[in-house]
């Protein structure tokens, strides 16, 4: 589900939009999406509807666009926390980003629901914030999301 090429550590960023753009650009590099700007806009539009900063410094931004070729889960850990208008008011330093094609009916909701369930557990939160290597993180997240 999470692929090692879709993990970013130490992302330097100055805003929510900049963060989203950097993660979406990675999905473009790996051929999962076509137009970066359209996908960034879809994710920002979703944030406008209601923040995906669900607390504990974690956000799950997501978007649906015809510029997304296949459902993609990305992970990013930021070098510096950024404001996300989070429910608990805290800035965000860890993100899961879910990108899905326009015709994917409930795919992203399934991933989102699994992530939400895991994020209620503090040990999951602590692990995703602290695991140092990409491979270990990917292995951990995929095992947890089974």
């Amino acid at each position: 589900m999470l692929d090692s090429q879709h993990v970013l550590f130490h992302v330097t960023t100055d805003s929510q939009e900049d963060t989203i753009r950097k993660v979406v650009a990675l999905a473009a590099d790996t051929g999962r999406i076509k137009d970066i700007s359209a996908v960034v806009q879809a994710v920002l539009d979703r944030e406008q509807e209601g923040t995906t900063g669900f607390g504990k410094g974690i956000a799950i931004p997501h978007g649906k666009s015809d510029q997304v070729k296949e459902p993609t889960l990305l992970f990013a850990r930021l070098a510096n926390p950024v404001d996300w208008n989070s429910l608990d008011g805290n800035p965000v330093d860890t993100l899961f980003v879910i990108l899905v094609p326009a015709d994917a009916a409930t795919e992203h909701l399934k991933i989102l629901s699994k992530l939400a369930r895991k994020l209620m557990h503090d040990d999951f939160v602590q692990q995703i914030k602290s695991i140092a290597s990409t491979e270990a993180l990917v292995q951990y997240v995929n095992a947890e999301l089974q």
Partner: peptide
């Protein structure tokens, strides 16, 4: 009262 709880249900 928990947003994560609500989202985890994936209510369509």
């Amino acid at each position: 009262k928990s947003i994560l709880g609500i989202l985890s249900l994936a209510v369509a």
